[in-house]
Design a protein around this nucleic acid. Structure first.
Length: 464
RNA sequence: GGACAGGUGGCCGAGUGGUUGAAGGCGCACGCCUGGAAAGUGUGUAACGGUGAAAGCCGUUCGAGGGUUCGAAUCCCUCCCUGUCCGCCA
């Protein structure tokens, strides 16, 4: 959510930012400013009336105390005249505020200055300094689903029977591998990077999804509970009003943890990690990645979320990306990192790094993590602020002035910055391990760091 | 699902019609005290919005909306949320 005051003061950065996203920034700004102006014109009139009413009400009290009934009656008549006006004005105010908010709610974040311009993923910019490893040479590399199905431990057909397309059963060692990966990732992030492990809700309310930016624009990507029930007496289905959404990523639960709060600066940064299932409708993805585990309705992911002071978020973004990459390095999986261009970034992000792992079976790099700095965009939507530390007025002077000490300056609350990243997508990491560690005999070696998590097992093979 | 009880500032918690934006406490900040700290002590400390160069002035906000009233945190209605007990249940 953008700050209308900032746009009012100077719309040039706003207009330019939206243009870089391929939107008609000027038209958007004009529309917003028009709605803003309409609201403020109303406010000036309304507040004058309210001020007069308040003043008159006080005088009525005084007149009555003095038994000046004539004066009181005259004032009451005046207030009665204002009343209707004020009530209509207040209703109009709510309407215009709503109109403005609705318009603001669907405008994406502005790209950071150092984000490359471009229309789509073709314009993303590789970061050679973050690249790791060389793709292994594997003859006749198989795709992960061929490997998994041959092992008898990955079953899409039965999942389709039970749940439909884009679901999977993992069994025995592959099921354990998923669990091992989740535990390994969480351990790394908590022990090595100071994240706090969280087990969050995966069903959330509208407000949470508004906060992180999935609503109101991207409803079609989400699953929601319906709570339909049979009304036996009337023989019809009824839908109760309460409704939850399934999280498409733990970013929603973890980031909204601080919604509607004023944090103290000492609490920052807050770093959360969670391993959760994620649910995505994948509407509009028909025909894309239809085979295998790349694109599922339900998948497992370890998420990283940081809440920071504004001046710390860029640094935190690099740190978070390091944490995500560390997982791949420990697994010795070749990968590269790209900076997403303006046309490929998500709605809430001001800057995003995608980490792409090498998949020999696909002979391609595929996204396995996405780390975004959202700036204050989500914080404004969630109403999350922090109070900067108060400081004495003489800060900056070499000598404290004599006499009574000046009062300290208490800075106003400011929106925090929020960041989120996958650390990593567990399902896709499992895919990467199968394809990169596949052996000619159909078995799959287990990366060294995972061996303890696999009960000492060093390879996965078909049960005899 | 049934029956109750509640929603007040960064937090806890008073407050049942008229300078109450709101006592008190905690927390926090800056002084004093101290060799330094703790303790003690003094002072300060709501958010959001409008207007203004600024100081300031004004408005809104005690879960949300509506109503009664000249005037509502306080009375009435509706809704939302939270808690407790019972029932069911991983």
């Amino acid at each position: 959510m953008h700050d209308i005051k900032a746009i009012r003061d100077d719309a040039t950065a706003f207009v330019r930012g939206l243009q870089r996203r391929g939107l008609d920034g000027q038209a958007v700004a004009n529309d917003l400013l028009e709605k803003d102006k309409a609201l403020r014109e109303l406010l000036v009139r309304l507040q004058n009336s309210q001020a007069r009413r308040n003043e008159a009400s006080k005088l009525i009290g005084q007149a009555k105390a003095k038994k000046d009934e004539a004066q009181a009656a005259a004032l009451m008549a005046e207030v009665a005249g204002l009343k209707d006006d004020i009530q209509k004005g207040e209703a109009e105010q709510r309407e215009r505020e709503e109109t403005l908010k609705n318009a603001l709610a669907v405008i994406p974040n502005l790209p950071a200055d150092d984000v490359p311009d471009g229309a789509d993923e073709a314009a993303n910019v590789p970061m050679p300094e973050r690249a790791f490893g060389t793709p292994p040479g594997i003859n006749n590399a198989k795709q992960h689903f061929e490997i998994g199905e041959a092992l008898g431990q990955m079953d899409f057909e039965r999942a389709a029977k039970v749940s439909g397309a884009r679901f999977v059963y993992l069994k025995s060692d592959l099921a354990r591998l998923e669990r091992a990966l989740g535990a390994f990732m969480l351990d790394t992030h908590t022990e090595q990077f100071g994240y706090t492990e969280v087990s969050p809700p995966v069903l959330v309310r509208d407000q949470a999804l508004f906060g992180t930016g999935q609503l109101p624009k991207f409803e079609e990507d989400l699953f929601q509970t319906s709570r339909e029930y049979m009304d036996v007496e009337n023989g019809v289905f009824r839908n109760s009003m309460d409704r939850f959404w399934l999280i498409p990523t733990a970013e929603v639960s973890l980031t909204n943890y601080v919604a509607d709060e004023i944090l103290s600066e000492a609490e920052l940064p807050i770093r959360f990690t969670a391993h959760t299932p994620c649910f995505r409708a994948e509407a509009g993805s028909a025909g894309r990645d239809t085979r295998g585990m790349i694109r599922m309705h339900q998948f497992s992911k370890v998420e990283l979320v940081s809440i920071t002071a504004p001046e710390k978020s860029n640094e935190e973004h690099e740190r978070m990306t390091d944490a995500a990459q560390t997982i791949l390095k420990k697994l010795d999986l070749a990968h590269r990192v790209v900076t997403l261009c303006t046309g490929d970034m998500g709605f809430s992000a001001q800057k995003t790094y995608d980490i792409e792992v090498w998949l020999p079976g696909q002979n391609a790099f595929r996204e396995i993590s996405s780390c975004s700095n959202c700036g204050d965009f989500q914080a404004r939507r969630m109403n999350t602020r922090y109070r900067p530390k108060p400081y004495p007025q003489h800060v900056g002077f070499t000598q404290p002035s004599p006499g009574p000490s000046p009062l300290p300056i208490n800075p106003s609350p400011r929106p925090v910055h929020t960041l989120n990243g996958s650390g990593l997508a567990v399902g896709r990491t499992l895919v990467a391990i199968l394809e990169n560690y596949q052996q000619p005999d159909g078995s799959v070696a287990i990366p060294d760091v995972l061996v303890p998590y696999m009960g000492g097992k060093t390879k996965i093979e078909k049960p005899s």
